[in-house]
């Protein structure tokens, strides 16, 4: 097989239950280099759990995760740490370290996990903060940043680790409407640079313009998958089109208020 055809990341038949309730039921997703896939679907459908299973923040009950064709040993802690270093994760609630300023939020993982010197880590962190337009906010603590700025620091923090894939779990959902744009701009910029991404989002503009493939998840299963050009055609009757229509109506409704 040609190496370019090997998925950078492959989740195979992943299942997960919490308290006897099946949240994921044999879900498979593969991402080739530079590919962007978007997870959509109703809340509670398993999107967040799938993302957390992919970088093993939650261990799958069944199934496997492979990185560049090599299956990750889910019972070996070191393998899990290595997987997480290579698969960046952006959370809805940012999860910045509250006791560290923007710069140190980025340098700490470089220094502690990647064992890079403080000087080199700071240089890299400044570069990443510049990239997300926060070069002048290095000394500010999370409590001094707006939601959009926090999310951009979180993205810069993940990127500084040189991940092969970025997982984004509703990156704009916790933001005020006027702050969403700045995060979307950063994500678009990443897409333009060829970053491989798997993203759960309710943001229509990201779904329709960035996705190479839409994955519609419902009750722990991917029930529909395909390119936006096929699934989002008005009146095509797909679940994805119906879902996006409802999102648009909600967004319009909010604007009218």
């Amino acid at each position: 097989m040609n190496s370019s055809e090997i998925p950078v990341l492959q989740a195979d038949k992943v299942s997960k239950s919490f308290s006897g309730q099946r949240i994921l039921n044999g879900v498979s997703v593969g991402l080739k280099r530079g590919e962007i896939k978007v997870l959509i679907g109703p809340s509670g459908g398993g999107k967040s759990t799938l993302l957390q299973c992919i970088n093993c923040l939650v261990l799958p009950d069944e199934g496997s995760i492979s990185l560049a064709g090599v299956e990750v040993d889910l019972h070996n802690k070191k393998s899990l740490y290595q997987l997480r270093q290579q698969v960046g994760m952006i959370f809805q609630d940012f999860n910045l370290f509250d006791h560290l300023n923007a710069l140190d939020n980025i340098t700490i993982a470089l220094r502690k996990v990647k064992k890079i010197s403080r000087t080199a880590a700071e240089k890299r962190a400044r570069l990443e903060l510049e990239q997300v337009g926060l070069g002048d906010k290095t000394d500010l603590y999370p409590a001094q940043l707006s939601g959009g700025q926090k999310q951009r620091v979180a993205i810069a923090r993940a990127l500084a680790m040189d991940p092969q894939v970025l997982l984004l779990d509703e990156p704009t959902s916790a933001l005020d409407p006027e702050l969403i744009g700045e995060v979307i701009a950063v994500i678009r910029n990443l897409a333009g640079k060829g970053m491989t991404m798997l993203m759960a989002t309710h943001q229509i503009s990201l779904i329709s313009t960035l996705a190479d493939e839409i994955l519609f998840m419902e009750a722990g299963v991917i029930v529909e998958r395909g390119a936006p050009s096929l699934l989002l055609v008005p009146g095509c009757g797909s679940k994805s089109a119906g879902f996006c229509d409802r999102l648009s109506e909600l967004a319009d409704g909010e604007c009218k208020c």
Binding site: Y81, R84, F94, F97, K112
Partner: peptide
């Protein structure tokens, strides 16, 4: 979660 996700 933030720390684990970075490989800590």
């Amino acid at each position: 979660l933030g720390a684990q996700a970075l490989g800590f």
